[in-house]
Design a protein around this nucleic acid. Structure first.
Lengths: 343, 343
DNA sequence: CTTTAGCACTCTGTTATGTCGAGTGCTAAA
DNA sequence: TTTAGCACTCGACATAACAGAGTGCTAAAG
């Protein structure tokens, strides 16, 4: 099942041509591009072999060949030659991200837009799972009796606020005491740890009959046990119009549906976030035939060495990987740098 | 240029038919539907008159007639008969909006999604202009020396937070003093008024050589003089796939471009927000021929009697106005109720 | 055994042609 | 003023013809 050297060369040429022209590749073109100096007829023989081995398909009997997903997998895994970014390009990317006045959400949104405009494809950025973010500080701000805003600041400068209703008798001083106690108890913990420890603390507090603790804990529990509303930024969806064959409108529709209906998307992005580096996934692999012909390139970003979320781009399977991969990679590195500089 | 009674009836029938079937309406259909008991030939004469007066067009010589924008304008202004919402429908809408755990942004997002799903069209909701929102309360939360979060709560429960850098010597107590002073000074004022008064206060403080005041004022100034990042929620963009003739993909593209590129959209929505009630605007009127065949239905919502922003829906010019108009209207009323109940 | 030239074959896309049906505009009569 | 009748127009659809691209196969050459 392994490929001979010249089969690999032919496959490489075909993939490259398909990336450049997005049209079935014929034997003549391969013969011209190849260093092997073979005739189209010979190329045809090789291409037949590659077809039998599952690397090429024919849209119809007398058309050229199109690389299969299997071919693209091989291509990105072992034939891809990234093109280095120009200094100018690096510079301009850096400048966009190093704007001090952006808060965390804005930074992610900017990143998503940046990716999109740089690669002319859908760009995206996923905020960290709250449960992985580390508690830095909690404050309450009493709005009126019975209503307060809870402000949780996480490592990396992520700020979340939430309206919470409370007993009308609770004063600003009470809240101050609560937050002091909670900060002492939970500082530096991840959300997951907080949730675990909450239960323990609750029990201990009850044992000690400590009303203060119990109130504080139940406050924070209702505020943060809710469904988390993850932020996903998706930009440049309009690029799919340029990338689609006018014929299969349905493929475009599938993609847009996938992007709009966030739950599957979120699940996917969370999964790829776990990767330790840049990941190339094909639609077929992560969503089935509905998204065949689409590729997700994703890479996680870190804060203080901890993976927080991911950024990436979604484009046609015949996108220009040599350009896109280094770009996404570089942007992730810059984002990580910027976030590390924050706290 | 005025229309005779029977011309109005014919036009009404044609508009209705075009709303129902989205296809050119022929004289036979009009003759069947009309109470006038005229033959198709007579209808043709009337239709010719209406065409000359600019209310109908023909896609080609031997096709039926299509109502022009002028016809739709007349229709929505004086022929529209809204269909009352069912109690069940009212109830379900109310239930969605009366979720106490939604903060202001979530409420708007929910509203936009609600509109979209109810009318099967693009739904949208626009957050208030910050400059019109009334200051309720400001709090600072010191994150670490030199960095704080400012939390501004506006009337209606709108919460904004912003990271601000400050002198490392400033303590939490200092910040408490600042916020006390600022709240005393600016409570209940709109952003616009705040900006005006800032300058005045600055001057007075300087005259009094009051370092505290000056520091507090300059803090709030940098934090809130920035570009405001308006929130617009747009949902259900996928519905345009169902609403478009497969042929003019370009019309769809124009619309999606208009929706994605937010600046024109924002300008438009701000303008329609100023209306005192529900507004029906045709694409041609607000964006030119690129969006002809699209209609925006918008209506403002209020907090304590003050107009804050708008909600609405964007759909094909031959949408079912009788259903959509009452729905949007009712949802706006519910939203206003919910917001009023908040503070 | 590998490579290649030659050729028949297949499929797409385009253009030309004809037919059907829907709907109109016009005219002349009711 | 209304209507019946009729010629006319145009889009939609089907069919056929044809060019072009590219293949698969075979037989000969290296």
């Amino acid at each position: 099942m392994d490929l001979e050297a010249r089969e690999i060369e032919v496959l490489n040429i075909i993939v490259q041509a398909y990336i450049d022209y997005a049209t079935p590749v014929g034997s003549r073109h391969v013969a011209k591009k190849s260093t092997l100096k073979l005739s189209p007829a010979s190329m045809r023989n090789i291409m037949t072999d590659l077809t039998e081995k599952g690397y090429l398909t024919q849209p119809h009997t007398s058309a050229g060949r199109i690389p299969t997903q299997k071919a693209f997998r091989l291509f990105v895994n072992s034939m891809l030659e990234p093109i280095a970014l120009s200094d100018k390009n690096r510079e301009s990317i850096k400048n966009v991200l190093v704007q001090t006045d952006l808060d965390f959400s804005e930074l992610l949104e900017t990143t998503s837009k940046l990716i999109s405009s740089q690669v002319s494809q859908v760009g995206m950025a996923l905020a960290p799972q709250t449960k992985l973010a580390r508690w830095h500080q909690l404050d309450f701000s009493l709005v009126r009796p019975g209503l307060a805003v809870a402000i949780l600041v996480f490592h990396g400068g992520i700020v979340q606020n939430k309206l919470i209703t409370l007993d009308e008798k609770i004063t600003a001083d009470d809240l101050k005491k609560y937050s002091n106690y909670l900060n002492d108890t939970f500082k530096g913990q991840t959300f997951l740890e907080v949730r675990l420890n909450l239960i323990k603390e609750m029990k201990e507090a009850r044992d000690q009959f400590n009303a203060l603790y119990i109130k504080a804990l139940s406050l924070i529990q209702t505020a943060f046990s809710e469904k988390e509303n993850r932020e996903i930024y998706v930009d440049g969806t309009l690029y799919v119009f340029n990338q689609i064959d006018q014929h299969d409108l349905s493929s475009m529709r599938e993609l847009l549906e996938f992007l709009e209906q966030r739950s599957d998307l979120l699940e996917l992005l969370d999964k790829v976030s776990e990767s330790s580096g840049l990941l190339i996934s094909f639609g077929n692999e992560f969503y089935g035939p509905k998204l065949e012909n689409w590729t997700l390139i994703s890479t996680p970003y870190q804060v203080k060495g901890e993976t927080m979320g991911m950024i990436g781009t979604l484009g046609p399977i015949n996108m220009n990987y040599s350009k896109v991969v280094p770009l996404v990679d570089y942007i992730a590195k810059m984002l990580t740098d910027v976030l590390d500089a924050r706290f």
